[in-house]
Design a protein around this nucleic acid. Structure first.
Lengths: 223, 223
DNA sequence: AATTATTTTTAGGTTTGTCTAACTTTTATT
DNA sequence: AATAAAAGTTAGACAAACCTAAAAATAATT
């Protein structure tokens, strides 16, 4: 009942491509996966037999409900491992992806659920992408790092990456926690630092380093 | 320069078998790996071409220096993941092996070294087997859990599994730390609890649960 | 609408790692 | 030492996942 590493990679790739376009073509997937079109067709027949895709020759394809479920499970694994690598092992988020590509194929439900628990059920990975929860549900509100937020627009803190005692101390000092509302008042081009207003308090300046690891969203659905 | 999952499994298996007997035979490896003898021969030719084994047809085989190095690297990965699963994710040591079998093939030197650091360079895995360090060196002193130690024989604490604040509190209360010398004075069959004497202090009784996760060795080479 | 270009599929081949069945070498037994 | 038994190897086949080259279907262009 498990899928091979190859099958999982196809499922994941189709999922990502169909997000934008609804249906995916052989050539699109071929480019995306750096695999020849003929191989795509081969695998598609296998995935169809396994009821993972809806596919008619020459007509493009998309994941079935089962396929989508599988994709979300794979994405959950990938993003939890990414979070682990960044938050616990202190890798920066550029290095993290490649390793997670391997780890995501270690498929043991209990392992992933315990990892999720250990990481305190994170909602976003280090790139800001949402992590599906144990039931496959994930946040749809896009999330960005604070340094990319626009001026004078209320932001809610949803996550802080790379937690360490030193970081927590700094955040506590500025009274910043998950859910805190804040606004960017000014940007200093020289060193990338920004002046922020946290709730009703007097404005403070924070470094670009800090701004980059504070993730925010605009909205009420989060808590 | 990397090895396939299959190659790694063969290397690891040969390493374990040759520990006891020096040389390994096709049938031994066949039984151990649950793979037909013909397949063993096939793979052995590949490993020989890669200079991982010394092998003459019909004469048995053993790992070369390169092969041994590879084996130790694989074992390092396996045991570090086992430690992670037990210590951080709170799996018990029976469940841990199977998952580590998959994780051990995720081979990224930096990942493993960071994991090692994150786990605070553990010297033994949850089964009591030594974990090779970054240079491939590992402790050779056998290590057992305290509940299997004999009466009136000095034991030195080398490791405590499944660390948690509650556990640390209990250990601190009994003045037990890594390196502490102690002796078992009495065993209570009824509930498996044991009476121990920690250094010069008055004897105390500890539960079987605790005794099972305290690992000890007999000797000076440890610190 | 006919022709050309593009996309997709099919047909047949390769590599990796396994298998069974047949054969060879080594070991054990009489 | 000859023969039987056991162990190990070779030969040929198969599935998975890829490939190239050729054919077929669809889309674009005149």
């Amino acid at each position: 009942m498990g899928y091979s590493v190859s099958e999982e990679n196809y499922i994941k790739a189709i999922f990502h491509l169909q997000q934008k376009q609804g249906k995916v073509t052989t050539n699109e997937l071929s480019n995306h996966m750096k695999t020849r079109p003929a191989s795509i067709t081969d695998m598609l027949k296998k995935l169809k037999k396994r009821n993972l895709v809806h596919y008619q020759p020459y007509q493009g394809f998309k994941l079935s409900v089962t396929g989508k479920k599988a994709a979300i499970e794979i994405i959950r694994r990938h993003r939890l491992w990414e979070f682990f690598l960044a938050d616990k092992l202190k890798f920066n988020w550029v290095e993290v992806h490649e390793m997670a590509e391997q780890l995501e194929h270690v498929s043991n439900k209990k392992l992933i659920d315990k990892l999720d628990e250990y990481l305190a059920f994170p909602k976003f990975d280090p790139h800001g992408d949402p992590i599906p929860d144990i039931n496959g549900k994930m946040d749809s509100t896009p999330q960005v790092s604070l340094d990319q937020w626009s001026l004078n627009k209320t932001a809610y803190v949803s996550q802080v990456m790379y937690s360490s005692p030193e970081l927590l101390e700094l955040l506590a000092h500025h009274k910043i926690a998950i859910g805190t509302a804040l606004e960017i008042k000014k940007r200093f081009e020289y060193d990338g630092s920004i002046e922020i207003k946290v709730q009703q308090r007097a404005p403070v300046t924070i470094s670009e380093t800090l701004a980059k690891i504070i993730f925010v969203h605009h909205g009420s659905t989060h808590q």
